[in-house]
Nucleic acid binder design. Sequence first.
DNA 1: TAAGGTGATGGCCACGAGACCATACGCAAG
DNA 2: CTTGCGTATGGTCTCGTGGCCATCACCTTA
Lengths: 356, 356
Amino acid sequence: MPLSRHRFWYHGLVATITEVARRAGVSTTTAKRAIREPGKLAPETLRRVREAVEALNYEPDQLASALRSGRSTTLGLVIGSIVEPFFAELTRTIVHDARARGFNVIVADNEYRDDVEAAHLRSFYGNRVAGLILRSAYGSSNLDYLLRMQGRGVAVVEVDCIIPGSPLPHVMLDNVGAVDRGVAHLVAHGHQRIAALSSYHPKLNADERVQRFPDALSSRGLRLPAAYVSQTAPTEREGYEVALHLMRLPEPPTAIFATTGSMAAGAYRALMELGLRVPRDVSLVAFDDYPWMRLVHPGIDTLAQPVEAMGRAAVRLLFDQMRLGAQAQVEHTQAERLRFPAELVVRGSVTPPRAE
Amino acid sequence: MPLSRHRFWYHGLVATITEVARRAGVSTTTAKRAIREPGKLAPETLRRVREAVEALNYEPDQLASALRSGRSTTLGLVIGSIVEPFFAELTRTIVHDARARGFNVIVADNEYRDDVEAAHLRSFYGNRVAGLILRSAYGSSNLDYLLRMQGRGVAVVEVDCIIPGSPLPHVMLDNVGAVDRGVAHLVAHGHQRIAALSSYHPKLNADERVQRFPDALSSRGLRLPAAYVSQTAPTEREGYEVALHLMRLPEPPTAIFATTGSMAAGAYRALMELGLRVPRDVSLVAFDDYPWMRLVHPGIDTLAQPVEAMGRAAVRLLFDQMRLGAQAQVEHTQAERLRFPAELVVRGSVTPPRAE
DNA sequence: TAAGGTGATGGCCACGAGACCATACGCAAG
DNA sequence: CTTGCGTATGGTCTCGTGGCCATCACCTTA
């Protein structure tokens, strides 16, 4: 099947400025001015051109405009998975703020895999995005490519997670502080056997939450049993499976610390299935204040992220970079790094462990 | 501040095919062939060009390509709100399937408002999207514009909701059947005072679910009290507020039928706040099988939508249209309309109403 | 030996809009 | 009458790629 019939073929169908000009009886230059510098036209000419624009449903071709001017009005957004509510809210904010500035956003999930991510980055670069907001896959090997993109004039901002050694600007949660608060919350209720559901990565433990967790325990005189450690993706399904595994251990944890909201949902489901109740049988603390966490009884204690503020900040950093342009990058200006604090919301899913 | 410093400026930064050709010591035509028709080159030439591509990190400019060929590889997706899990899952499927075919997807929320939607449509048309998948706002007045876009060669598919009178292809739930099953489920348990949480629109009741609801009642000998009718957007917040209102009526419903998952979440929250328990005090049936619905106790009875299948179908219809091209539209081929059945999942949120 | 085919490569224009220079005209000051 | 200037408008080249035609060397066949 011929490629030419496979895709949107617009020549001859969509109106161009030439046709507008012809219909209005002016030159293309004048017609263009009616759109971009209407003050320079005589009122009567302006009226005629506007009439033609209206009649032909003319809409300037952004592709041609971007090509000629070298200014793209498209951004790329790579996240873990759009069905994760954290990413959905982040995406909403980013898309909204970008559109308010006249930019479109191409969205793609990396599915927490760096090969998928690599393909998206190439595609975004090929589409000449003006900027890129990235939530990299754990253990991503795409830092070189990102830096090359940046060198080619693409603004890049990392969110939620950073590639180790990355010099790029980023917007992150204060993960160390948040993990400490979560652990402190559990320890204050007397828990000693605590397991974290987190995104352990075989090679690179880029996840700051899981990196901090053992230290947060040991600084309080506790240790992390080897049996509590597993390697997972931060999804509902993995949360479910790891929680099942943990609670079937000879010495199961008395408290579970889920480092993402979806993992918490999976764990909660596993606990229900095992007939275990929260917090009577197991205490639970989670990241991400998801709607369901106040629908269950009692509600889940959680470390809420200021998602909207983080999304806005990411867009702001991106446009700062785009404003400065390649200059600043050549001059090795220090990249801006932002940290946002998590807020502990207590609802009752943590109580002292049962005496055995 | 000058516009020229505001955006991505790529000329002189990104490598073009001309530079690749120069570095490889061949003409641009030969260099291009190395990418699109490598079989036509002598092995040694091919090697040299590939080396240059590698060295310069050359990536073809999709903007220029789309402009020249008239074939865009970008799609537009307009949904209600990405934070609604139904739309998130739909988006995931659509973006995934589109990327598998080499297409990018620009995503935008219409926030259930047709003026926001109109702005997105103009922007998508200006960006020369090859196709558009749309979940229109209730009471959308953009049908004319959509038809003009279609006339200009843009493939259009509606999902989840259709503009009244629209001749466009669509992918929908069998809403009439689903509402009937939900009502039947409640009536079978003896409920007579049933309220629907739905997206009533002041002017146009485009929402098939709310349109069907009164008939589903009356065909079973029941009637819908005027006090149970309200106008809402299908959000968590509105679900919460309408449920509060309903349960404070002199004659509150004995069962609530939420026509979206988010409204169900809002209603559930309202019931908790009022100290009412499901199903002891109120029975609840919802659309959309969201994860939280099996985390609460008892789980929520729900009409599950085959979201992934619907997303895949929408992409398939879109590419069918793009394949056929403008020809078929001129020939007034009958648009394809697909309906998917909902599945009733029973978990225990419906029991006979309490004797008063 | 001439005609014809084939494989490998290059030249050239167009897509639609942006940037800049050029032109034509009116009008006032010298 | 010329000069200068401002206003209104038009002409032309360019961005990077796709599509098509042209060229040239080499080989085969009658």
